[in-house]
């Protein structure tokens, strides 16, 4: 089965290991991801703060391209892209907004009729592929590994139709067939601070510390994420956290597709475990 795929800037630039492992784990369950041609930045959570019509038009440009390509679904692997594209799609249901944004799209020779369904790869794996088929693809189970699945805020907020807004378990159900143990993780949908990590460091550090210390308290070996932005926020500032809080044993952060692909027979190198900023050494040895 083929899906049209929207990588987004972060996946493409700062998380090549996520993109790579996404493709790998999807292939193992018969899914091919075809990159949307000539995609542009979705605007993330920043653009809409300056000009909402422009933000909607820019991001809907990608939806218009997907529509023109005849796709019903546009799949992304980034929580921020997921919600930004989905919001633009929703904004097209407001008449004034649709009118204004359509006019702008027209200037670029495009139109959007609102027929594309924006989806996140984690949810596609859960709902279209399903645990049974994932189970069939497992060849090297992750027995003994304790995983805390961090969903972040945007996967199930504000759109709550794919999972619980406070305690989602999408990733847990995708990864359960790997044989790893999914620990209870109350902080799973707490905010990682997003851009505040850059603009208001102390606020960002406090948020991430809460998430990481929850994972540690639940005895997780690794935290699995489904977003390139969450991933950077959780892994890149652990030194800084150690300067403010009691945090001296760093917690490795991996993409959930890296774990899935490992269980499907890929090697540490195949999934780019060496690109994790805090290396999960025990996994690198096990899957060398």
């Amino acid at each position: 089965m083929n899906y049209l795929f929207y990588p987004g800037c972060a996946l493409e630039a700062s998380s090549p290991h996520y993109y790579k492992s996404c493709r790998l784990s999807c292939e193992k369950v018969g899914i091919q991801l075809d990159e949307l041609e000539d995609w542009t930045c979705c605007g993330a959570t920043a653009y809409v703060g300056t000009d909402e019509v422009k933000a909607t038009a820019y991001s809907a440009r990608n939806l218009a391209l997907a529509e023109r390509a005849g796709a019903t679904d546009l799949v992304t692997a980034c929580n921020a892209c997921y919600i930004t594209l989905r919001k633009s799609d929703k904004f097209f249901t407001n008449e004034t907004m649709r009118h204004d944004a359509s006019e702008a799209l027209q200037a670029a020779g495009l139109a959007y009729d609102g027929t594309v369904r924006v989806r996140h790869i984690a949810e596609v794996l859960l709902n279209d592929v399903g645990p049974a088929r994932i189970k069939e693809s497992i060849t090297t189970p992750l027995d003994g590994l304790k995983v805390a699945c961090y969903h972040g805020c945007l996967l199930t907020r504000p759109f709550t139709d794919i999972g619980d807004p406070e305690q989602p378990d999408i990733m847990d159900r995708v990864l359960a067939p790997t044989g790893a143990e999914m620990v209870d993780f109350p902080a799973t949908a707490k905010c990682c601070g997003g851009m505040l990590m850059t603009t208001r460091r102390e606020v960002g550090l406090a948020l991430v510390y809460e998430i990481l210390s929850c994972a540690r308290a639940m005895k997780a070996d690794v935290v699995a994420v489904a977003c390139p932005l969450c991933s950077v926020n959780l892994e890149a500032y652990q030194d800084a956290i150690g300067q403010v809080y009691d945090w001296d044993r760093p917690m490795p952060i991996v993409l959930f597709t890296q774990l899935l692909a490992l269980a499907q027979g890929a090697s540490a190198e195949d999934v780019g475990l060496d690109q994790c900023m805090i290396r999960p050494e025990f996994l690198m040895e096990r899957f060398a």
């Binding site: 805020c153 945007l154 907020r157 504000p158 807004p165 905010c191 601070g193 997003g194 948020l207």
Partner: peptide, 9 residues
Amino acid sequence: CASCYSCTV
């Protein structure tokens, strides 16, 4: 505002 949508939901 970190844009986490907790308030909204």
